[in-house]
Simulated scan of single mutants.
Amino acid sequence: MSLWIILPISLPVFIITGIWLVYAMALYNQHVCPLSNWLYNDSCEELLPLQKGPVLCCTLENLPLISKSGTLPPESCFFSLICSTGSFIVMLIGLLRYAQVIERHQNCVLNTAGLSTCWICAAGLITAGNFQLDYAKVLHYVGAGVAFTCSMLFVSLQTALTYKLAKTQQEYLLGHIRLTMSLLTFMALVLGGAFFCVETSFVLQHISAILEWVFCMLVMLYYGTFAFEFSAMSPDTLVVLSRGGGASRFPASVHHKLEASAPSCYPPDGLAMLYSECGGGEMTSPHITQKLSSGGDGGV
């Protein structure tokens, strides 16, 4: 089993743990309302951080969105760190997955599109994580929109690629699991976006926040399923990357067989050395001259 399996497992563990930690910090500092809260008001007499008592007055300004939880310090610092680190891991997973498909099968449009959407998603995640919602709303929404959309595209492309390359029963089962997760992710994204646009309904806005959390969890768990492929990753995958992602004409096993069957006699600099190393014994200068004058039948 390859140690690369740690990479797709570490991403959901790190991201899911990190964003829930950020939410817990925001909840402790009363920067957002709890996810369990379903009562919202048009306005409150005091701001949420200044309120005291077991019952809090919540408005849509304190909706428990993931990005809203990481808006104010100190949790905003951890949120930026989590998004930046997560983006790097996402890019690395996408690159290795791209190279592994080339190394084990061949390159295709789905594979190239998967790498492109993965890296664009990482760029959107960095933007959303480092431009907080309350201070750079436009940039934050652009980054979040790019990250969410490209995440959905990446999940869909990888699901189609899984079915295209599947040969064993386990690979088809993995495709079914990814297809189920893709459909749930799509439903969470579409419904969450639709409910978020209905600003007159507090209930739908809160459901939208919950669906955003569900979407993020599903996408991170989807990345975790790459542990199946990464457990069998070979050093040839890194060779593919060193060649710039170019696919070789023959599989690696064929190259090894060709190398093993190739003759071990290579032409040295001197004709006498050549004849000696290839089993001809010693030759003197007259012998060499005789060979050359007769057409070189026993020589080169």
Rank of each mutant, 00 (worst) to 15 (best):
W4N: 03
I9G: 01
V13F: 14
I15P: 00
I15G: 00
V22L: 11
A24Y: 10
L27M: 07
P34L: 06
P34D: 13
L35I: 12
N37G: 03
N37Y: 13
N41F: 09
E46L: 15
P49K: 10
V55F: 13
C58Q: 07
N62K: 07
P64K: 01
S67C: 04
G70P: 05
S76T: 01
I89G: 05
Q100H: 09
H105A: 09
N111F: 04
T117L: 06
C118T: 15
I120S: 14
G124A: 13
T127P: 04
N130T: 12
N130D: 06
Q132C: 00
A136E: 09
V142H: 11
A144S: 07
A147N: 01
F148S: 01
F148D: 02
F154G: 08
A160S: 05
T162G: 02
L165S: 04
A166W: 02
Q169E: 09
Q170I: 00
L174C: 01
H176F: 03
L179R: 08
L179T: 14
A188N: 08
G192Q: 05
F195K: 03
F196Q: 05
T200H: 13
Q205T: 09
H206L: 10
I210V: 15
L211M: 10
F215M: 14
C216V: 14
M217N: 15
M217A: 09
V219N: 08
M220T: 06
L221I: 11
L221E: 12
Y223D: 02
Y223H: 14
T237L: 07
F250M: 11
S253D: 10
K257D: 12
A262W: 15
C278Q: 11
E282R: 13
M283W: 15
M283Q: 13
M283D: 03
P286S: 03
H287Q: 13
Q290N: 04
Q290E: 12
S294E: 14
G295Y: 15
V300D: 10
